[in-house]
Simulated assay, not measured.
Amino acid sequence: MAGLSIWHVLIFAIVVILLFGTSKLKNLGKDVGGAVKDFKKSVRDEDAEQAALKEPRTIDAQVKSAESSVKS
């Protein structure tokens, strides 16, 4: 039971290209890349929301954040 050799992978790639064509594979790659990009963005947004929830909600903290937003 040998593993996949480079020739097996090469033959498989040729068959896939012949079946689907390069344009469909290119579109598939774009779709997968866009999905990964959206997933990473949502994870970052969720982390930012979690960080915002951990901030203290005292009156002093609210006054400081209001002062800093007025200065900006």
Results as ranks from 00 to 15, higher is better:
9 V>S: 06
53 L>G: 08
58 T>M: 03
9 V>E: 04
34 G>V: 03
45 D>H: 07
49 E>S: 11
31 D>F: 06
38 D>Y: 05
5 S>M: 11
7 W>E: 14
29 G>Q: 05
44 R>H: 10
12 F>T: 06
71 K>A: 15
30 K>N: 07
66 A>W: 02
69 S>F: 04
23 S>N: 10
64 K>M: 10
52 A>S: 06
30 K>Q: 09
25 L>E: 10
71 K>P: 05
17 I>L: 11
5 S>C: 10
35 A>D: 04
6 I>Q: 10
68 S>L: 13
68 S>W: 02
25 L>T: 12
61 A>L: 06
68 S>D: 12
69 S>K: 08
51 A>M: 04
56 P>M: 10
28 L>I: 06
33 G>M: 10
47 D>K: 12
36 V>Y: 07
4 L>H: 01
3 G>N: 05
44 R>Y: 02
44 R>W: 00
24 K>M: 07
5 S>G: 15
32 V>W: 01
23 S>T: 13
24 K>D: 05
14 I>P: 00
16 V>R: 15
29 G>A: 09
38 D>E: 12
16 V>Q: 12
11 I>A: 13
57 R>N: 03
24 K>T: 06
41 K>W: 03
53 L>R: 07
3 G>Q: 02
57 R>I: 01
1 M>F: 02
65 S>I: 06
52 A>F: 06
21 G>W: 06
18 L>A: 12
31 D>N: 06
57 R>A: 03
28 L>T: 08
28 L>H: 03
4 L>Q: 03
3 G>C: 01
32 V>P: 01
32 V>F: 11
35 A>C: 04
71 K>I: 10
17 I>N: 08
33 G>Y: 02
20 F>L: 09
36 V>D: 00
7 W>F: 14
14 I>A: 14
37 K>R: 02
7 W>D: 15
65 S>H: 07
54 K>Y: 00
53 L>M: 04
36 V>S: 04
62 Q>D: 13
70 V>D: 10
35 A>T: 03
5 S>R: 11
23 S>Q: 14
45 D>Y: 03
49 E>L: 09
48 A>R: 09
28 L>R: 07
67 E>P: 01
50 Q>L: 08
63 V>H: 14
13 A>G: 08
67 E>I: 12
55 E>K: 15
29 G>T: 02
55 E>Y: 05
50 Q>K: 12
46 E>M: 08
52 A>I: 00
41 K>A: 12
8 H>L: 04
41 K>D: 10
